[in-house]
């Protein structure tokens, strides 16, 4: 049943993302052609090309921001509308365990987050001049030099756990807000701030346990190993917080559901 939920979740969300991604790729290519030709052509019909470059860049930036916004909005809307709105009447009468609803929404939201990030990065790489691209590559090399192979692992883990937390904390905020009789959206927003405050506190509480690894040495700046540990500890806190959010969300949807 999880596979089927994932399939429908993907279908329901893809109709937003696919056209936007396609448009972004198209305008990335158009902008690239225009930008990389401009020096030779500018002299001939300067104003026309300038307008064309300006327009395509404008649309490009517009699409780029659009993707960021849509990624966030769809993520919230799929949980709020599909589970806790009228469509919830159908979703919650399917013979499916509650946790599968949460996991299917979470996984698909993470997929779109990742894809949006990858496509966004690729499009930037196609547009920035090759020279600056080289510097970006150097940055990646530096990670290995500075943090070792471990660095890739700790950074990926940190990115992954923070992505999970970023999505599930919104679900939890919405689920908690749903417990209120009135002003559910306002309550959800308040809960979101609340969860982030709790997250800060948890982080503060976890750090001291690893103090030996972190601050014992009189460091002018953080040593590579320390940085690795810091990344891993942060990843651990995100993992713990995500698990807590997941449990709370599941309990609310399973035992406190009230669709009105």
């Amino acid at each position: 049943m999880l596979a089927k939920l994932l399939k429908y979740e993907l279908k329901a969300t893809a109709r937003w993302f696919i056209p936007l991604y396609a448009a972004l790729v198209m305008f990335t290519l158009i902008s690239r052609v225009l930008l990389h030709n401009d020096t030779s052509v500018l002299q001939e019909s300067a104003s026309f090309w300038r307008i064309a470059v300006f327009l395509s860049m404008f649309i490009y930036v517009f699409l780029f921001i659009g993707i960021l916004v849509v990624t966030l909005v769809v993520e919230i809307q799929r949980f709020y509308k599909n589970l806790l709105g009228d469509e919830g009447y159908l979703m919650f009468t399917l013979p499916v365990q509650t946790w599968k609803h949460i996991v299917s929404k979470l996984l698909i939201a993470m997929l779109w987050n990742l894809l949006s990030a990858v496509i966004g990065l690729c499009s930037i790489m196609l547009l920035v001049p090759a020279q600056e691209l080289k510097e970006l590559g150097l940055l990646f090399m530096n990670i290995k030099e500075y943090l070792g192979t471990m660095g890739y692992f700790s950074i990926s883990l940190l990115l992954f756990t923070s992505l999970v937390f970023g999505v599930i904390e919104m679900y939890t905020a919405i689920a908690l807000g749903h417990l209120f009789r009135k002003h559910k959206l306002l309550a959800s927003f308040g809960m979101y701030i609340g969860i982030n405050t709790v997250a800060q506190i948890v982080y503060m509480l976890i750090i001291p346990f690893f103090q030996n690894n972190l601050v014992l040495r009189p460091a002018p700046s953080l040593y590579p190993e320390q940085l690795n540990v810091l990344f891993l500890v942060s990843a651990l806190s995100f993992a713990i917080l995500s698990a807590a959010c997941y449990i709370v969300t599941n309990i609310i949807l399973k035992r406190k559901l009230n669709l009105e």
Binding site: R15, D86, Y89, L90, T93, P95, V96
Partner: peptide, 20 residues
């Protein structure tokens, strides 16, 4: 729960169909 949802067919008073 899951066991009852398998055997209960429910028509709500509102429209629960998605529009897409």
């Amino acid at each position: 729960g899951v066991e009852t949802k398998k055997i209960v067919s429910y028509l709500p008073e509102k429209n629960y169909l998605n529009d897409w």
